[in-house]
Amino acid sequence: MQHRMKTHMMTKEKIEYLLNRTTTCSIATLNADGTPYVTPMHHIFHNGYIYMHGLPKGTKIDNIKANPRVSITAYEMDSLLLDPKGNACDTNTKYQSVIISGVAAIITEVDYKREILMEIVKKYTPQLSDTVLPENMVAGTAVIKVQILDITGKYYG
């Protein structure tokens, strides 16, 4: 276990708070040749799952279909903590971060997709939360659901 995980572990409540307030995360999938592929995404943490949305085709979707195991990270950097004596090597960072290991699936059921897309609208554009999503937009959007297998959070500062 990393040193900071021993001394600066976030509680479940703080992890969930970070996931709910951050606007982006990165999802790592594996390419067919085994190399990692990392994509920045908008996300929501809803009912114990991470959800993301995007185009229904592309490398990320192909990778999830071939191997659904993923890793997600979300973080906030607050500020640099400069050493009072000016030693560059003793500069630190005030931050919070969450790392998730999970299994991703592409949601195909239309009503479920619509429900999750509305939750995404509520987070990112709450002023539009009473809007009805067009059927073609719901049908043409990929919604990724990540079942969380392991989740850790740490902070400093």
Rank of each mutant, 00 (worst) to 15 (best):
N63D: 14
I148L: 03
T73A: 11
V146H: 05
L30F: 12
R21T: 08
P40V: 04
N92M: 07
V110M: 14
Q96S: 09
V143P: 03
N31P: 10
T35R: 10
T152E: 11
I100C: 02
S101P: 07
S97Y: 06
P68C: 01
T141Y: 07
M41Y: 12
P56L: 06
V110A: 13
G54T: 02
H8K: 12
Q96D: 13
Y37M: 07
D111T: 13
G102S: 07
Y95W: 03
D33I: 01
T39D: 09
I148T: 00
V103Y: 09
P134V: 04
P56V: 04
K57F: 08
I144K: 02
M137C: 13
A139E: 08
M41A: 09
G157W: 07
P84D: 04
E135S: 13
P36M: 07
Y37I: 10
M41L: 15
G157C: 05
I99A: 11
R21Y: 03
H46E: 14
I27M: 10
V98F: 06
I44C: 03
N136L: 15
N87V: 04
I120M: 11
D90E: 12
D78G: 14
A105E: 07
P68E: 00
T93W: 12
I100T: 00
E109F: 04
L80V: 15
L18E: 01
K14A: 02
G34Q: 11
E16V: 03
Y95E: 01
A32N: 13
K12I: 11
L117K: 01
C89D: 12
E119T: 11
T108W: 11
I15Y: 00
P134W: 02
T93C: 05
V138F: 02
L19Q: 01
G157K: 09
E109R: 09
V110L: 14
L133H: 00
I61T: 01
K6A: 07
K94F: 09
Y49L: 10
P36L: 07
G153T: 01
Y75S: 12
M137T: 15
R4N: 15
Y75V: 02
I44F: 05
E16H: 03
D90T: 14
T59H: 09
T59V: 11
A74L: 02
L117V: 10
T91P: 08
E135I: 13
T35K: 11
L82I: 13
L19T: 02
E76C: 05
S71K: 04
T7H: 10
E76A: 09
K65H: 12
T108G: 14
P40A: 08
G48T: 00
V121K: 11
N47V: 01
T108N: 14
L133T: 00
S26N: 14
L128H: 06
T7A: 10
N67I: 00
D150C: 12
A88L: 14
R4L: 14
Q2Y: 15
A32G: 10
S129I: 11
I107R: 00
I61G: 00
T93F: 13
G54P: 01
L133G: 01
E135L: 15
S129P: 15
P56K: 04
P40Q: 03
I44T: 04
V121N: 06
K57Y: 12
N63M: 08
D83G: 00
